[in-house]
C-alpha cells in the first residue's frame, strides 16, 4: 500500500508581499486518515499555512504536495478544482454564507465540483445527504433546518461548517481555530464530534489552534515553531 501522504511540505518558503519570511518549513507530512493538531501562537502563520495547503496562496519556493499533487506545479483552476473536489475547510467563525439556508450552506462545495456532487450521492440526493450530516451533528428537525443561518448560535454555525466540510467525503479537512469562539464545554464536544465524523469518513484532519490544551484530543500534536525555521511571524 503506497497511498501518498495527504500533505507533504518540502522546503516551503512563504512571505507576504515584501514582508520578511513568515514560513520556512523544511519538511512536514500528514498521512492519510491521520488527525493532527498544529499549535502556534496568534500571528505565527497558521492560517497562512492553511491557505498554502488549500492552494489559495502560492509559496515563493519549495513544494506543497496535497493528495499526491504538487500544488505549485498545478494551474490556478486545477488547484481550485482539487480543493473543491477533495478538501473540506472550517474557519474560526462566520463560516456560513448568510443568504443561504443550512442545507444550502452544507451543499455549497457541490455547486463548484461535480466530483463532489457525485461523491455526495448525485444531484438528486444532495439535500438528503446534507440533512443526514446535519442530523449526525445534532442539527435536525424541520424548525432547525428552516432557520436563517444568521440566527444560529456560534456552536451551531460551526457544526454546520463541519457538515459542509464532510459532504462528499473529502480526503482532507483543514480546520482553522474552529473552537476559539466556543466556551470550554461546547469546545470539547465540538472537537469530539469533529474527530468522530472525520474518523468515520476516513478523512485526514489538520486542526490548528493557539490553544495547547486541545492537543490531548488528537493522534499527534505538532508545534509550528518546531517545523518552521522562519522568525518572520510574531
Amino acid at each position: 500500500m503506497t497511498t501518498p501522504p495527504v500533505i507533504d511540505l518540502i522546503d516551503l518558503r512563504f512571505a507576504w508581499q515584501d514582508g520578511p519570511a513568515l514560513l520556512d518549513i523544511p519538511g512536514f507530512r500528514l498521512e492519510a486518515g491521520e488527525r493532527v493538531f498544529l499549535r502556534g501562537p496568534s500571528g505565527s502563520g497558521k492560517s497562512t499555512l492553511l491557505g498554502l495547503i488549500a492552494g489559495v496562496l502560492e509559496p515563493q519556493s519549495g513544494k506543497v504536495e496535497v493528495l499526491g499533487h504538487d500544488m505549485t506545479a498545478l494551474s490556478g483552476p486545477k488547484r481550485d478544482a482539487l480543493r473543491a473536489d477533495r478538501l473540506g475547510v472550517i474557519f474560526q467563525m462566520f463560516n456560513l454564507v448568510p443568504y443561504l439556508s443550512l442545507v444550502q450552506n452544507v451543499t455549497l462545495p457541490c455547486r463548484f465540483s461535480s466530483a463532489r456532487r457525485q461523491a455526495a450521492g448525485g444531484e438528486g440526493r444532495l439535500n438528503e445527504e446534507a440533512v443526514r450530516l446535519l442530523s449526525r451533528l445534532g442539527l435536525d428537525g424541520e424548525r432547525m433546518l428552516s432557520r436563517p443561518v444568521t440566527e444560529l448560535s456560534v456552536g451551531q454555525q460551526q457544526r454546520v461548517a463541519v457538515a459542509r466540510a464532510l459532504i462528499g467525503g473529502p480526503d482532507l479537512i483543514i480546520a482553522d481555530e474552529p473552537t476559539s469562539a466556543l466556551d470550554a464545554d461546547a469546545r470539547d464536544r465540538f472537537i469530539e464530534l469533529l474527530n468522530e465524523e472525520a474518523g468515520r469518513s476516513g478523512a485526514a484532519l489538520l486542526f490548528v489552534s493557539h490553544d495547547a490544551s486541545l492537543a490531548s484530543h488528537f493522534d499527534r500534536s505538532v508545534d509550528l515553531a518546531e517545523i518552521n525555521r522562519a522568525k518572520g511571524g510574531v
Binding site: D80, A81, L108
Partner: peptide, 8 residues
Amino acid sequence: ILRATGAR
C-alpha cells in the same frame, strides 16, 4: 467562504 468551498 466561497473560495474555500471551491469557487474559482
